[in-house]
Simulated scan of single mutants.
Amino acid sequence: MKAVTIKDVAKQAGVSIGTVSRVFNGYPDISESTRKRIFKIAKDVGYSPNLAARTLSSKRQKTIALIFNDLVYTPKTTMPMSILNGVYDYTQSKGIEFAFYAVTTQKQKQKSFEQFCSERNVSGVILQGLHVTDPYYEQLKTTKIPTVLIDMYVDNPYVGSVSTDNVAAAKDAVSSLIKSGRKNIDMMNGSYNATVSVWREQGYHEALEAAELPPNSSLIQYANYDEQIARLMAKQVIEQDSTIDAFFCASDLMALGVIKAAQELNKRIPEDIAVMGFDGIELGEYVTPSLSTVSQQPYQFGQEAGKLVMELIDKPTLDHVLIRHVPYKVITRESSD
C-alpha cells in the first residue's frame, strides 16, 4: 500500500502543501476552522507527520506531554503525582510547555500513538504505566517521536528509558533477607505484562542463585500490585507451606497485604515471616510493624524524564538507546529486622 503523504492531505483539503505544513508546525496565521479540518482529514487518511524532524526544524514553542496509561487513584501511594510534579517542575524551570493526558488500553486501540501526538502538536512524550500487551508498545518500536518511557524499555533510539535499576534493587533487597537468615523466600510479584515485574523477578532469581538457594516456581505469585489480592494469595501460600520465612514483594501495597495475611494467621513479623516491599511509600514508615522496602525517587524520575526527552528532541542519538537509572536505597525496618 502506498504511503499517505502531505500532498494527499493538501489535495483532499483543497489547500496548498505549504498550508498543511504550517498547520502541523503550529503557525498562528491559520484559521482554527482550517486547522481542525486539516487535522481531521489527516486522521481520516492515516497521515502522521514526522514529529521528530518537525521539532528539530521548527522554532516554535516546544511542548512535552506526560501520558499516564490506565491511571488508577490509590490513596496509599503518591508515586504518579510525584512523577507528574517532577516533569512539571522541570518544564517550568526551562520555559517548556507542559501537557498532561490519561489514556487507557481501549483508547490506544482507537487511535495510534502517532495520531494521538500529531493531533496535540507535541514535541516529545513521557509515558508511564504502559504494558507490553498495549498497542502503543508495539508502535513505539518504530516511532520517530521523541519519547521517554518510565519503568520500561523499547529497542528504538528515539525512545529513551528512566527507571530504578530494578534488577539490581530487587537482588539487593532479597540478598538482605538472605543475610538475615531467611532461606525459603516467596515473591509476591505484580503482573505478567509489566516490564518492571519481569526485572524485579530477575533480581529475585539472581539473589537466590548467588546464595545457592534452589529456585521454586511455586514461590512466585502475581497479585497485580493490589493489596487485597496479595493478602488473599499470601494467606493461601502460608497455609500451604509452613516453611516460608520471608516475602519479597514487588510493591509496598502488596507488602502491606502480606503483613495483614500473616497477622491474620497469627504469624509473628519478622520472627516467623519477614516482609520486604518495593517503592518506599511514606505510609510504610508508620504502619506496625514498619515496612522494610526499596526506596525509589519518583520525583527524580519525572525530572530525569524531562531532561532525557529534551535531549531526544534537540539532538537524538541514533546509534543506541538512552537509559537513565535513578538511585535507590534498601531500607531495613521492623518487618525484616
Rank of each mutant, 00 (worst) to 15 (best):
R231L: 10
F113C: 01
P298H: 11
Y88K: 09
V237D: 14
L283K: 04
Q296V: 00
K59V: 09
Q61A: 10
G18H: 06
G46E: 08
P28S: 06
L213I: 15
G86Q: 01
I244E: 08
R200Y: 05
N25C: 04
H205M: 06
E206W: 04
G181V: 12
E201L: 05
S218P: 01
R35W: 04
R60I: 11
K183E: 13
P215R: 08
N50G: 11
T317L: 06
E304Y: 08
Y90Q: 07
K40I: 03
T288L: 09
Q115A: 13
I331Q: 07
L140M: 15
D8G: 13
M79N: 14
V287P: 00
A305I: 00
R54G: 14
D314C: 05
A169C: 09
G284P: 07
R120T: 12
W199V: 02
S163L: 13
G160R: 03
M152H: 08
S163D: 15
L140D: 00
T19K: 06
Q139M: 10
A255C: 12
V87G: 02
R324A: 11
A194C: 06
V174S: 08
P270T: 01
R333F: 03
Y299A: 10
Y88I: 05
V125K: 00
A52R: 14
I185L: 03
A42D: 08
S336M: 01
T104F: 00
Q263R: 07
F24K: 02
P28C: 01
L130Y: 00
V196Y: 03
R200M: 04
L84R: 01
V125D: 00
A211G: 05
E304W: 02
G160S: 06
G190K: 05
R22E: 04
V72A: 07
T5Q: 05
T332Y: 02
T105P: 01
K111Q: 12
G26D: 04
P135K: 09
K315R: 10
K43W: 04
A10P: 09
P135T: 00
T63D: 09
N25H: 06
G284I: 06
R268T: 09
L84E: 01
S16I: 11
A255V: 12
E97L: 11
T55R: 02
L291T: 01
L265H: 04
M254D: 04
D44N: 10
S290Y: 06
T195Y: 15
D134A: 11
A230G: 08
S123I: 01
K59I: 07
D44I: 01
K94E: 13
L127M: 15
S82M: 13
Q139S: 15
D337V: 07
T105E: 08
I41D: 03
K179S: 11
Q300R: 14
N189V: 01
D151I: 02
M310V: 01
A305P: 00
I64K: 08
A250R: 12
E282N: 13
M1Q: 05
A194Y: 07
P298A: 07
V72C: 03
H131L: 12
K111G: 01
E239L: 14
A274C: 05
Q240G: 10
A99Q: 15
A261Q: 05
T78D: 14
D226A: 10
A210L: 09
M187W: 04
L232E: 15
F68W: 06
K183G: 11
Q61V: 11
T147K: 00
Y286H: 13
Y73G: 06
